[in-house]
Design a protein around this nucleic acid. Structure first.
Length: 253
DNA sequence: TAGGCCATCTGGTCCT
DNA sequence: AGGACCAGATGGCCTA
């Protein structure tokens, strides 16, 4: 691979810190501030990556989860054309006007970036031997397919960006590919953790519904469940009131 | 200016 | 044979 490799996260232990992981753990400035979700970036030493974020931080602020902002993306600095600007088939080639590489006979569309990209390799490497004589059109077809494939991949990444909560804002730069993948992974871990906690809470409430006093079990963190905490508090207060009013009966509930 | 990120081209490998 | 997938190489843009 290249200089960055994702941690082999199949093991649950502490992932080794590759350069890219450090970059994610300490996101660049354009991702800090409002852009940084409270759950997204693995905290060094905190129980974020494997165990998920602390439940007290589960309420991210500054963004709208699951909101699609493809229109806003057009204003975000970046090189890729927003999804809405291109057809379903992905991006059209926007290279130099020369192009035999242009699969669109109608001519190259407006370049998606201010500059017209040059295609340095297309001519240089072709100057070789008979192998390249397989036919220019064949090679160009292969190139077009590969381009389309990469565009599809980027479209999928855009869709992934649209469903992971982070600051979708014109002033916030688009997540990089690797950041998108790592953020999505952390989001999945967080959701799984929240689901587990919810299951435990439901099981506990069901188990104590018929008993006298409802008390949070030792070690159970209710900070992430304000509604549940409020409910328990109400139950305890009601229990106390009834206990005082019907002290003669001695019935705790 | 260096480094990060990206798009594209290219050749190799595997699969149908 | 043709297509999908992959990784290396290259060069451009942007930001600190």
């Amino acid at each position: 691979m290249k200089s960055f490799e994702c941690e082999s996260s199949s093991e649950g232990d502490e992932p080794s810190i590759y350069p890219i992981s450090r970059a994610i753990a300490a996101p660049p400035q354009w991702l800090r501030g409002n852009a940084t979700p409270s759950w997204g970036w693995p905290q060094s030493g905190a129980s974020s990556s494997a165990g998920g974020p602390s439940s007290s931080n589960m309420e991210p602020v500054g963004f709208t989860p699951f909101a699609h902002h493809s229109n806003e993306e057009s204003q975000i600095p970046g090189r890729r054309t927003p999804l809405g600007a291109v057809g379903l088939g992905g991006f059209q080639f926007q290279g130099p006007p020369s192009d035999e590489n242009n699969p669109d006979p109608a001519g190259p569309p407006q370049s998606r970036s201010p500059q017209n990209r040059t295609m340095p390799n297309s001519q240089v490497v072709q100057g070789g031997k008979g192998k390249n004589r397989q036919g220019k059109s064949v090679r160009l077809n292969i190139n077009a397919r590969e381009r389309r494939r990469m565009h599809d991949l980027n479209d999928a990444l855009d869709e992934l960006r649209s469903v992971i909560p982070y600051a979708h804002s014109p002033s916030v730069r688009k997540l990089s590919k690797i950041a998108t993948l790592l953020l999505a992974k952390n989001y999945i871990l967080m959701q799984a953790n929240a689901l587990e906690e919810m299951k435990r809470l439901i099981a506990y409430l069901q188990g104590t519904a018929s008993t006298a006093a409802i008390v949070a079990p030792p070690g159970f963190d209710l900070q992430g469940f304000p509604a549940a905490a409020k409910f328990l508090q109400q139950q305890q207060e009601e229990g106390r009131n009834e206990g005082s009013s019907s002290a003669s009966s001695g019935n705790p509930l």
